[in-house]
Structure formats: structure tokens, C-alpha cells
Simulated assay, not measured.
Amino acid sequence: MSHTAHIRSHRKPRRSASTLAMRAGVAGGVLGTLAVAGASGSANAAEPVTQTLELPTLTADLAVQAAQSADATQQAAANYQLLAERDAAAAKAAKQAESDLADARKKAAEAKKKAEETARKEAAARASRSAARTTLSTTADTGTVSTSTSTSTSTGTSTSTSTSTSTATGSAASVVDFVRAQVGKAYVSGATGPSAYDCSGLVQTAFRQVGISLPRVSQDQSTAGTQVSLDNLQPGDILYWGSAGSAYHVGVYVGGGMFVGAQNPSTGVVERPLSYDPPTGAVRVL
């Protein structure tokens, strides 16, 4: 007998195949359960992650809505500002229109007043001319003067101008006195006094003294009244040189075969006999 025969064996007894199979099945079931549970746990753990991923989408939507709201507010403010500007412009235009209307009414009133004043002066001038003509036609001739002037031509022939005139009265006397008072003053083209004249400026200013408005230039003054013969001149008649309607020079007949005119820059305003520069024709406005 071996010396170890009495020692109890420590080896574990062999398990049977059925026992091992049963234990393997149990272990497999437990592992399957754990796997299912793990999967379920993993699924449950993923839910917060899914919600966290959706948060940026919700935040972006809110940002878009906020931006749209800001744009709408800004547009509304711009619309209000535009309306305010339009209202201000309309108010300004209305105020300007009211001012323009007031100015137009003022100018119209001034124009009406000026037209009435002009009409009054013209009526007074017509009355004055009518009175002067009546005086000339009813007053007996006093101090009739007969004059005869002659000029020689280069051919040796002579021409004569005879005048028979009465002493100036009324408006004609005023015109004669005025032009004689200007004798000695300078001749300046375009001047109408008081220190200088040209020919038509002297005539126009002289007749203005008695309320008669004559055209400014010689051409028009030569047709401003009734054409009269040089043989029947009266003081105050307008003499012209050249053709009626295209005269180049004018003067005033002052009686006694004399005229006053602004001749040229060398002589200025002078009183000369008709023979000094015989006129072409004459018109009477008084």
C-alpha cells in the first residue's frame, strides 16, 4: 500500500455533460438578458442626445423669427418716417402756395392801380390837348409873323420855305419854353435829360412836360401826329428829317422860322433858323 493511500483526494469530481449544458444555458440566458438590458439602456441613454441635437434647430428658428421681427419693426419705422416727411413737404408746399397767392394778389392790385393811374394821366393829357386846340382855333391871331427863307444849291438854283405862324399858347407854349431852356446842353446818344439829350430824347421829354407820351425814336415820332405842311407850321410842331416813318432826325418848331434841336455832339442843343438845316416834313400833336 502506498503511503499516500490513506490521504483523501482533493480532486473535484467530474461534472456530467448534462450539468455543464444546463449551466451553459443558464449563463447564456443571463448574458442575453444583460445584452437586452444593455441595449435598452443604450437606447434610453441616446434619447437625451437626440433632444440635445434638436436644440440648435429650435434656437436657429427663434433667431430667424427675431430677425424677421426686427426687419418688420425697422420697415414700419421707415414707413412712419416717410409719411412724416411727406406730411412736412405737403405742409411746406401749402404754405408756399399761400405765400405765392398773396404775392400774386398784391402784384395784381399794384398793376391795377398803375393801369388806372396811367389811364387817368392819358385822359388828362387828351383833355389838355383838346383844350389847347380849342384855344388855338378860337383865339384871334396876335403877332402874326411872316418869314421867308431861301437856300442855294450847288446848281445855283434856290429853294424857299415860307411859314406863317401864331404866337404859341397853352401846351405848345410850354413845349417851346422847355426846349429853349435846354439850349446849350450836351448831345449824348440815348440821353433824355436833364443834362444831355439826343434829338428824339429832347422831343420826347419836352412833350412829357405837358402830359403827352411820345415814342422814343425819331422814326416813330415822325408819324406820331397829323402830317402838316411846312408852309403852315405852328409852334410846338415836330419837325423831322428823312421820310415819315424812317426819319433820322427830329426837332421842335418854336415859331418865327426857328427850331430847337439836339443836333450832334459838336453843337449840342441849339436854336437855329429853318434855313440852317431845312426839314423834310412836320407832324402836329398839340
Rank of each mutant, 00 (worst) to 15 (best):
A46S: 03
A94C: 09
S166T: 05
S99F: 13
L239G: 08
P279Y: 08
A45K: 11
V283P: 01
N232K: 11
G256P: 01
A123G: 01
S130H: 01
R208Q: 10
P194T: 07
V36C: 01
T149W: 12
D277C: 10
H10W: 07
R14E: 12
S275T: 05
A173W: 02
E271S: 13
V254I: 13
R126N: 11
D103F: 15
T138D: 09
P194W: 10
S137D: 09
V183K: 02
A77Q: 02
S146D: 13
A247R: 00
N44P: 15
D220N: 11
G256M: 05
L20I: 06
A35W: 05
G193P: 02
A262K: 04
Q234W: 06
A77C: 03
S2Y: 06
T134H: 14
G242P: 09
E85I: 15
G236M: 09
T57L: 08
W241T: 01
A186W: 09
Q75M: 06
S148Y: 14
G170F: 00
A94W: 14
A108T: 00
S171E: 03
T142V: 03
S18W: 11
P265C: 07
A262D: 03
E85R: 10
P278C: 03
T57P: 06
A17Q: 08
E47L: 05
A78K: 01
F207E: 07
Q204S: 05
S218H: 06
E110S: 09
E271N: 14
A43G: 01
Q204M: 07
